[in-house]
Amino acid sequence: MSTADKKYKKTGTNAETNAETNAETNTETNAEIIAGADTETEEIMRTVTKEVKKASRSALMQSLGLIRAYFKLNLAASMEYRTSFILQVFGMALNNASFAFFWWILFDRVGTIGNYGFREVMMLWAIVSSSFGSGVVLFGNAMRLNDMIVKGELDSYLLQPKNTLVNILASKTRVSGWGDLVYGFVLFFILFGFDPIRLVLFIVYTITGALLFVSLFSLSGSLAFFLGNANALGNTMVEFAISVSIYPESIFTGPVKTLVFTALPIAYISFVPVRALRTLTLVNGVMPILVSLGMTVLTFFVFHTGLKRYESGNLMINKL
């Protein structure tokens, strides 16, 4: 039994005794007793809150420790095949750069699209590349979650005393994600040079964007708990998120715009961060942080609710 439980039991007993003993005492005494009980209840609540915070903090620290450990292991494994690693990183960076060519041709012809020019679209690309890259480097299984649930591959993760979702997502990496990450940062330095304020903002939005991408991928994967094989639907969400986030905000109007600012908050991956990088305004600056935290909480909630419906496939797999 925890300290908080013991205290609660003690208070309960005290309150009952007090009620019996002081049944016929005057109002003043009652008020004193009530005031005393209130103080004690407050103290208990404080202790309970402290304990919960401590437990959450330790769970968070444990998860961060797990992510760090997986990251080191996965990186070491990737570096084992160094040529392959370098080829994938440069291949992906070059792959992304080809789109810059398309936008250069287009803006050379059309000037601007809404309030977006070539520079603004490259900002979108910088944020999306670094967010997506860091997301899949750290949580490489996010895009495989649907398959893993359908095939019953979660058993080995359920046996370990770690947060199941973090354990699943972080256990694999996607090497090509390094190419995206590098490309994003290179693009940032080309666009802004060394601008400390914007660099800090860019790093923050890389983290919030990564959280949003991983949340969207995991939420779409978690649909498998409720709908069976939801691969097509999940893939559609994933493709939609990636495709929309790299086009100028101004081309989306009506229901699509509403959708990307609400139910599928893709706008907070790139559109709002680009606004913040351009104008350095507080509202635009803070919203991606709040939305990404909200989506992360929602992802944990949906995954753990769905996990209760999971059916084992009796399949033991290698995690790394």
Partner: peptide
């Protein structure tokens, strides 16, 4: 070449 996937990415983007 062991890791030839990047060739496909580049061709596709071309």
């Amino acid at each position: 070449v062991e890791e030839n996937e990047p060739f496909r990415w580049i061709y596709q983007k071309l």
